[in-house]
Amino acid sequence: MAKLRKQYSKEFGKKEKVLNYATQTYQLSRPNKVGAVMALIRQCQPKTFEEWEKWYFENAVTTGKHSAKITKESLEELGERLYVKITEIVIPEWTEAFRQITLQDYIDYIYNLTIPRTYDGFIREKSVIEDNLAKIFPEVRFEESEPELDHAGDINYLGWVGEKAFGIQIKPVTAQANFGNYSVTERMKLSFEDFTQKFGGKVFVIFSVNDTIQNKEVIEQIAAEINRLNRQ
């Protein structure tokens, strides 16, 4: 029988859901807070947990314009911020929501999530491509991604430039109130890297409101990528 590998991560049981929710909601585990951890551990290639921990604190820095060295104290400070967010915001908001929610809310929510929101998202995505990008870049052949690429790789559309393609992820701004502060997760970064290795092109995140592109700078970035793919 194979020897069970020791697990170093702590189990939080039922507390995991609320801790994860607040951490993701308030972006406390993003690279601009804790560094690009998956990229760091791949650089380190540790043989032991102790080697990884030591290497992380020696090399990890926050990403962004004003990078800073990450220390045990800075991680503790993030934990304290998480405590404040949960106790002062999450718990009061959830308590009020639990007090007000009704059976009809549950029924309406499942229906709305399954049918109306799916339709709205489908139309929004098609409009971003057909009414915007396809007209700006008529030489590019846009097509919907395969289901496994959409769900696992976070890619909604492919833009074919010859035999290579770049990826498009479309997000409603309502999913990120301030899209200027949006950053992809480590998992999404890895899936984007896998896409580039397979198709040759980069992945671009587009934010839309009422079927229009809000982060206009992405158009110039896509144009540069098309030129790069054409030169290869």
Rank of each mutant, 00 (worst) to 15 (best):
E88H: 13
A2Y: 10
V205W: 07
G121L: 00
K189R: 15
I155D: 01
I136F: 10
D131C: 12
E88Q: 14
E58D: 14
Q104G: 03
V140L: 02
I115R: 05
N181W: 05
Y182P: 01
D131I: 05
P116K: 04
L190C: 09
V18S: 06
E16F: 07
E163R: 13
A224P: 05
I129F: 10
P116T: 01
V184W: 06
H66I: 11
G159E: 02
G64R: 04
Q169N: 15
F142W: 06
A152T: 04
N20G: 14
K6H: 09
A134W: 09
K65G: 12
E146L: 11
A60L: 08
E130H: 15
W160C: 02
S9F: 13
G153M: 10
K171Q: 00
Y26W: 15
A36P: 08
N20S: 14
N178V: 03
K198I: 13
N178C: 03
N112C: 04
I110S: 08
G13P: 08
P138M: 00
G79Q: 05
E51I: 06
Q197W: 12
W160G: 02
K33G: 01
A134P: 05
P172C: 02
P147D: 00
E50H: 08
I213S: 00
L78G: 00
I222D: 03
E51L: 07
A177F: 12
S191W: 14
A165H: 07
Q169F: 12
Q7D: 07
G153D: 03
A177C: 09
Q43G: 12
L75H: 06
Y8N: 07
K10G: 04
K164Y: 14
S145R: 03
D150Q: 09
G153Y: 13
T25D: 02
S67H: 11
Y182G: 00
A68T: 13
I155K: 01
G13L: 05
Q7T: 10
N178Y: 11
K65Y: 15
D194Q: 15
G64P: 14
T48G: 05
D108F: 12
L40G: 01
K65E: 03
Y21I: 07
W94G: 06
